[in-house]
Design a protein around this nucleic acid. Structure first.
Lengths: 183, 183
DNA sequence: ACCTGAACACCGTTCAAGT
DNA sequence: ACCTGAACACCGTTCAAGT
């Protein structure tokens, strides 16, 4: 008793996910300049105009790529140890961006204030609020650490992943210790 | 006895400085996408091909714009108070980028590791070294604060200069105090 | 050396048309 | 609804030619 979930009518040639994935593959392989409607469509074997059935503009494509490439990290905070949870999430974000410089470049030109960054801020707010931070303190604290993580990740991604990845952890500890103390 | 410093031959129609300034005006007015060889040349009343007499490529134009727009701050350190001098310079950099979002965008896409950032790192190194930092400590410390300042300035410049400029100073104090303590 | 227009190989996007 | 090619208004860059 298999229930058909196949949509009526002629099957689509592509899906939005396939478009985003093809664009991300191109980004990883050849950098942001290679990501064009024509190139992406070529990878998928469709006309470049087909993409306009799924996306309003190139900006929409870049947004879809960010949404597809980056998960918003879960925040479990199992031991109620907010400082450790905070550190863990920030390291996770940092590592994800450094490991994929093309995606970092994408964030950078596209959405330093997009939904992905907003979602992260929200999760961190939920983490800090029950731990002795007023709302205003938490908002400021989140700005400080998020900006630090983004800045470090973008700088590291923009050079050949050159210098001192351990300096990142050092600064992160200074910030988190300072926040705990000043709470 | 005026000595003529005027060069021989037909006078040039433009100078490299005029090209960079016209491009920066365009950047401030209409954003990075408006900065093209054709638009800049149009502003100056010359053929777009004339720019190739002064610049090898568009990348060279963007580099020239950064060099023209941003001074590398002086570092006097008059009272030998390195922490205050450090803070002052970092605030200066932050404010310069936030005040001119187009230039921040330029840094971002072009030269997060360009000569301007390198020069700043050098000056900060000269500031920290005589104040109880080993070379390795100083290099890490500079990475931390520079990445923080760039991250904050880029995020603030990318939104409509929206949220909490005071959070910047808060994080900066946490970092500098932590560095002093851990030195 | 400096300046130029034509041409080439690309873009994103609009339009009109096909299924 | 989904897909398409032609066309438009742009790019950066190469080339050949002018002064």
């Amino acid at each position: 008793m298999t229930v058909s979930t196949r949509p009526r009518g002629r099957p689509k040639k592509v899906t939005l996910e396939e478009i985003a994935d093809a664009a991300l593959a191109l980004l990883d392989r050849e950098g942001l300049d290679a990501v064009s409607f024509r190139r992406v469509a070529g990878e998928l074997g469709v006309s470049h105009m087909t993409l306009y059935s799924y996306l309003d503009s190139k900006e929409a494509l870049l947004d879809a790529m960010v949404g597809r490439a980056l998960e918003v990290p879960e925040l479990t905070d199992p031991h109620g140890n907010w400082a450790d949870s905070l550190r863990e999430v920030l390291v996770e974000i940092h590592d994800a961006l450094v490991a994929r410089p093309g995606v970092a470049q994408l964030i950078l030109t596209q959405s330093l204030d997009g939904p992905w960054v907003l979602a992260i801020r929200d999760r961190l707010l939920a983490l800090l609020r029950p731990n002795g931070f007023t709302r205003a303190q938490a908002v400021d604290a989140i700005s400080v650490v998020v900006n630090y993580v983004l800045g470090t990740a973008l700088v590291e991604a923009s050079r050949g992943s050159g210098a001192s990845p351990k300096a990142f952890g050092l600064g992160l500890d200074l910030l988190i210790d300072g926040l705990r103390r000043g709470r």
